[in-house]
Nucleic acid binder design. Sequence first.
RNA 1: GGAGGCGUGGUGUAGUGGCCUAACAUGCAGCCCUGUCAAGGCUGAGAUCGCGGGUUCGAAUCCCGUCGCUUCCGCCA
Length: 606
Amino acid sequence: MSTFRDVDPAVTGKLTCGSLRAVNAGEQVVLRGWVNRRRDLGGLIFIDLRDRYGLTQIVFNPEIAPAAHEIASDVRNEFVLEATGIVRERPEGTRNPRLATGDIEIEVHDLEVLNTAVNPPFYINEESDVDESLRLKYRYLDLRRERMQRNVILRHQIVKYMRDYLDDRGFVEVETPLLIRSTPEGARDFVVPSSGFPGEFYALPQSPQQLKQLLMVAGLDRYFQIARCFRDEAQRADRQPEFTQLDIEMSFVEEEDIMGLIEQLFIELTEKFTEKRMSSRPFTRMTYAEAMDRFGSDRPDLRFGLEFQNVTDALRSTGFKAFAGVIENGGVIKAIVVPGCAGYSRSQIDEITEIAKANGAKGLATFALRDGEVKSPIAKFLSETEIAALTTDIGARDGDLVLIVADTFDVVSKALAELRSHFGDVLGLADPNEFHFLWIYEFPLLEWDEEGQRWDATHNPFCGFLEEDRSLLETDPGAVRAKQYDLTLNGFEIGGGSVRMHKREDQSKIFAMMGHPPDAQQERFGAVLDGLEFGAPPHGGIAMGLDRWVMFAADENNIREVMAFPKNQRGVDLMFDAPSPIDEQQLIDVGLALRPKPEDAQPVRE
RNA sequence: GGAGGCGUGGUGUAGUGGCCUAACAUGCAGCCCUGUCAAGGCUGAGAUCGCGGGUUCGAAUCCCGUCGCUUCCGCCA
């Protein structure tokens, strides 16, 4: 864990409020900073002067410097001061061990108020919960607070570490444009009109995906960028309309090269910037199929077990219609054993049944093992052998509660995964001081889009596939495995990438399956397709969510806490009040006329 | 688009049908105070309880609607 408050005055040419120690006693100094707190004892006035490096107590004595004392009497919190005086060791018994500068104080001889400050809308000098809207409106004051300064500086240091790490390994940072072409696929684009081209639009990049591939065609070989990305989609605690990725692309690589590079980087970042215990070194690896089978999720939190148990086979000949019907239709029956919850009340069972139902399950079967007995509403429909198969055979012991969902594979996965996650929370199974990194690989390349009646990329349309699965493209496209890998951490995806297709014919074939006929392909993806024809090397890469990673490193549970100027959940910038209407002339310049709004869609922000 | 939670002086909370003429802490203003560091003491200002409607003799409190914030689902290649 590095400290953020050290800076060498010899380098910066500047004394800070965190730098003075007992050895400086007797020196004449000038300190500048904000009033953190003021204690007026009538005679003596103490002020804690604050900058981002720390606090220093400055003292005003009416007998030593009456003029300065007079000015200090009218000073208030957050005034900006320039204090000139002598560093004194504090009298014995008045030192403050909680302050780095607590052995000294400044006996001020001259005080200048560089600026006054009105009373701030929330506390700056203490950690306290404040309505986030208020914090975002006055973000510059929020950022003056210690916690936010810590996060902003941590982010800087992490980014610097990433840059150095990659630079050491021969990577070149290349900036790519923010005004690009709108392409189909993926999220909704933010679009930008321009006066030079009325009726036409740039788009802000959802990621530099195509550009970084073209940099590989260019022979740059090892590229990275701290890249801003834009997606016009709904926000979440870990999603903002504009966010930052550590974007990487390399030539002549396979999955292993990229995973190894990233794994080492994140081991070092974890060790350097967090106190977390890494429980997976090397990082755990799991295929998508295995993760879905054992945990029902492509990003399971592996800090705890509650693994799925597949009991389908044990129930093949059951007479219980609800289970038999599911098996007959090709579904599965899976269970999780929840330790120590056999005493759950009816209403508690109802509550978790709701979780299952909310995720598509028709119901939730439960078996409580209490006092040597099995209590279950469906026990009467099952044989002794079957009951054993659903309880003791899968490791349930007295006091445990077994949850069973029978349905299609997808429904079982989703419902049980939610329940697993729920019990991980309520039973406190996940260690907050643990980082469990997990690679998921061999994702399916394509999934059938019922709505669009076409195949859709599960990752991105440039993702390559396992050569051994090539023939499946004709026979069973949904079974083709992609050369894709996601890095997950404690149940969150923190990055993902793939080895790409580097031959035009492959790329073109996939585009066609995704519903882009050849002429449209040229129109929509011409640059990449053409580029692949001019000696594109095999290449692949990855994009890591920078904000999410910093959120983890800073121990925050919200991405906004690690962004200097984030938007709220609706995507509104409360400080600038953006988005906003623009002048009629601006519309004319770019050749736009606004459609009338639906009647109930008036903007109602104040 | 859907579901849940929240909305009370500047800030954070309490109050969940009458004891509310709305409480507490902190901040703010004034006065006192020469070793404080969450300084202390005294005095004071500050809220039509998000907004609208309804139920009731009576609503911060119950109901309906609405707005805002937030979390989750959908969505996010």
